[in-house]
Computed example of a mutant assay.
Amino acid sequence: MSFLEGALDGTPGLVSVSLGRLGAPPAYTRSPDAPHYAASTMKVAVLVALHRAADAGLLDLDAPVPVVNDFASVGGSRYTCDPGYDNEDEVWRRLGSSAPARWLARRMIVRSSNLATNLLIGLIGLPAVAGAWRAAGATGSVTARGIEDPVDLDNTVTAADLARLLGGIATGSVAEPASCTEMLDVLAAQEDLAIEVPGGARVAQKSGWVTGVRHAAGVVLPAGEPPYVLAVCTTGAPDGVIARLSRLAWDARKELL
């Protein structure tokens, strides 16, 4: 996998990578445990926590959830989300009404809805999200607050942990098999295709971005070939790094051990 190292020579900023066959140790890593601001990749942990709660009988994914824009800060105050900072309008159109948790979860991933994310965190609680990270074997990722909570705490991820989390969904180890299948289908419907592969191969992925930060993690499922997991976190790197690495990983997929 040395060609991947050469592909990043001279790239400014911090680029973290974890690449390997599904269910196997990574074949290539680069700063895999370096912490990055999470951006929207933390929404995968919220998704897993939601399904784990449903698996445990703690909630019904089809029960209505009030759609409000008023949230408890971990600092003890209240805060709201800015609709201009969101990528998704459908959830906002239901403000003052309700929506099923399952539908909110899909909008959280497919269109990266911030409002849906906070509604679901309010439903299950941050300790449940921490439990999802632990179930995946994560060691350095923290979901400390909801989106836009003004408290001075950051949500952080590592490439290694994102690979573990996505891999855990694809192998059915972080929740019940039916829940993992459903989560994989939702991730495969994400509209921001940060991990690019040719030929229409299925990719279950989640991306995240804010100014200066761009991440993506996903499971690539080529037809008739073994699947693999790719997670890339970039801070201060130029645009195009994830697309370039995803194409290189695709070209080298048969060499993965």
Results as ranks from 00 to 15, higher is better:
185 D>M: 05
164 R>N: 06
218 G>R: 04
27 A>V: 05
141 S>D: 12
34 A>G: 10
93 R>H: 08
96 G>H: 10
32 P>G: 10
87 N>P: 13
30 R>A: 14
10 G>R: 00
171 T>Q: 08
203 V>G: 13
228 Y>N: 00
175 A>F: 02
129 V>I: 15
99 A>L: 14
94 R>W: 09
94 R>G: 05
156 T>H: 12
52 R>F: 04
255 E>P: 00
63 A>P: 04
248 L>C: 00
65 V>L: 11
207 S>R: 06
134 R>L: 13
234 T>F: 09
198 P>L: 05
254 K>L: 15
177 P>F: 01
181 T>D: 12
237 A>P: 02
199 G>R: 03
28 Y>L: 01
102 R>T: 09
102 R>A: 15
50 L>W: 02
13 G>Y: 06
22 L>D: 00
233 C>Y: 02
89 D>N: 12
243 A>I: 08
253 R>Q: 03
81 C>S: 14
212 G>T: 11
252 A>D: 13
82 D>W: 12
16 S>G: 15
44 V>R: 08
67 V>E: 08
256 L>K: 00
225 E>T: 04
218 G>Y: 03
207 S>V: 07
201 A>P: 01
112 S>E: 06
254 K>G: 14
2 S>Y: 09
141 S>K: 13
204 A>Q: 05
200 G>S: 05
39 A>R: 07
125 G>N: 03
82 D>L: 12
100 P>C: 03
220 V>M: 01
167 G>C: 06
235 T>K: 07
191 E>Y: 06
163 A>R: 09
125 G>P: 07
39 A>V: 11
12 P>R: 11
245 L>Y: 00
200 G>R: 03
107 R>D: 10
81 C>A: 13
242 I>D: 08
46 V>E: 05
159 A>P: 04
83 P>K: 01
8 L>M: 04
